[in-house]
Design a protein around this nucleic acid. Structure first.
Lengths: 214, 214
DNA sequence: GGTGTCGTGCTGTCTGACAGGTTCACGCGA
DNA sequence: TCGCGTGAACCTGTCAGACAGCACGACACC
C-alpha cells in the first residue's frame, strides 16, 4: 500500500499542497489497520513527500522524492558556487541532444515568463526552465542535481527575492540560452548559460557567506 | 527518538551490517511503545539506512542517507559524463581550502592504497579518496553529489572491475592530485584531477552506453 | 552423523482506547 | 447585528495487548 500511495503522489493524482484523507479513512480504503497506514505515511514523510501536523492531517508537500541535497542544509554560497559547474555543461549537452518536444516546452516556458508579472510565479517558471534544460541534457545525474539544487534554493526566500529582482535581465538571458539550444550549438549554449549564471551570481554576491534560513 | 536512532547509525556507533535490538528491546530502552519504534524504523528504512526482515530483525545497511542519485538508476554513461564537471572544480577548491587535518587524511588514504592488494578494498579506498577531496572542497553540494555518484557507481560491478584494473596507474595519478592539493594550487589540482578522470573515462570507454545492472 | 520436530524470538498486523491539538459552528451577550 | 466564547467533531500521537507467520537453533530420534 506504500507503493500505491507513493505512486499516487508522485504521479500527481494527489496534487501538491492538498490534504490526504485521514488515517482512518485511508485504513478503510485499503482495508488495513491504522498502524499500517501510519507506517506508510511515516515512510512518505521520511522521503520528503508529505508532512503531517497534529490535529490537522497530512499534506502533500512534494511530488517527488527529495534528494539529500534538500534534506541537508546548504548555504547560499555552496549553491551559487556549485550551480555553474553543473548547469553550464548541462546546457551544452542540451543543445546537442534536444528534441523538438524539448524545444517546444522550453519556448513555452520562456514565453510564459515574459508575460508573468507575479514575482513568485516567475521564480517558479525560472526553476522549471533550468530544470528542463537539465532534463534535455539527457543526463539523469544533471537532471537530478539541478532539480535538487533548485528545490534547496526554494527554501531560501532571501535568495529568491534577489533572483526575482532581475527578472527582465534574466528573461533576455534565457532567450539567448534558448536560441543557442535551438541552434544546436553546445559552445554557444554553454557560454550563454555561463553568462546568465555569472550575472545571477553577481546579483547574489551581496549574500556573501550568509547562512541559509532553513 | 528517530533523531537519536538515526544519529546513532550515521555516527557509526552502530556499525553497518550489524543487527539492531528488537523492536521490543528498543521500545523498552527508549521508554516508548512498539508502535513508535516501528514508525521510527520505517523512516530509517525509507531513508535507506536500515532493512528489516520478517522473523530475523532489522539490520543497518548504510551509514548515511542515500540521495536519489542512488535510488534512481543511472547509466554508466551518465555517471562518467557527470563526474568530471563536479570533481574537477572540487579538487580545485580543495587545494585552496584544505586544512592540515584534510591533508593528513588524504595522505593516509593514498598510502594505504599503494599497499592494498585486494581489488575490492582498493576500490573502496578509491571511493574514500574522491569523497574526501569533495569534502575538503568545503562545498557541501560537491560533497553530497560526489558521495552519491560514488555510491551509485558501487552498484555497477562491471564498472568497478574496470576501475580496479588500472590500480597502479590510478595510484600514480592520485599521488599527483594529492601533491597539487598539498601545494595549494587550484590550477594544478584541477588539471591533475582532469587527467585522472580522463584516463578513467578512457578505460571505461568500452562500456559505451550499456545500461546499469541495477 | 543425519534428520525431523519443537520451542523461542522476531516481525507484521489488528483492535480498542485515551490524550492533546485544530477547526468550525452554534449560541449567547453586548 | 456584530463579536466572542464555548463545545462538539475530527484529527494525529501514543499506548497496551493479542495473535499469526517466519526464521533459527536446540534437541531428540532414527
Amino acid at each position: 500500500m506504500l507503493a500505491d500511495l507513493r505512486s499516487e503522489i508522485e504521479s500527481g493524482t494527489v496534487p501538491v499542497g492538498s490534504r490526504l484523507p485521514s488515517e482512518s479513512a485511508l485504513a478503510a480504503r485499503y482495508g488495513v489497520s491504522r498502524s499500517v497506514v501510519r507506517e506508510a505515511l511515516r515512510s512518505c514523510a521520511a522521503l520528503g513527500l508529505t508532512e503531517t501536523h497534529t490535529g490537522k492531517g497530512t499534506f502533500v508537500v512534494s511530488g517527488r522524492v527529495s534528494g539529500d541535497l534538500v534534506l541537508g542544509r546548504y548555504s547560499a554560497r555552496d549553491l551559487t558556487e556549485a550551480r555553474p559547474h553543473i548547469e553550464i555543461p548541462a546546457a551544452g549537452l542540451a543543445a546537442v541532444r534536444r528534441s523538438e518536444e524539448d524545444l517546444a516546452t522550453l519556448r513555452g516556458i520562456v514565453a510564459d515568463m515574459a508575460l508573468e508579472d507575479d514575482p513568485a510565479a516567475w521564480v517558479a517558471l525560472d526553476a522549471t526552465f533550468h530544470c528542463h534544460i537539465a532534463r534535455t541534457s539527457g543526463n539523469k545525474v544533471f537532471e537530478s542535481v539541478v532539480t535538487d539544487l533548485r528545490e534547496a534554493l526554494a527554501h531560501q526566500s532571501e535568495t529568491l527575492n534577489l533572483i526575482a529582482d532581475r527578472q527582465h535581465a534574466s528573461d533576455l538571458e534565457h532567450q539567448k540560452i534558448l536560441a543557442a539550444i535551438e541552434a544546436g550549438s553546445a559552445e554557444l549554449a554553454s557560454a550563454a548559460m555561463a553568462e546568465h549564471l555569472e550575472a545571477v551570481g553577481r546579483a547574489l554576491g551581496s549574500l556573501g557567506s550568509s547562512p541559509p534560513e532553513g
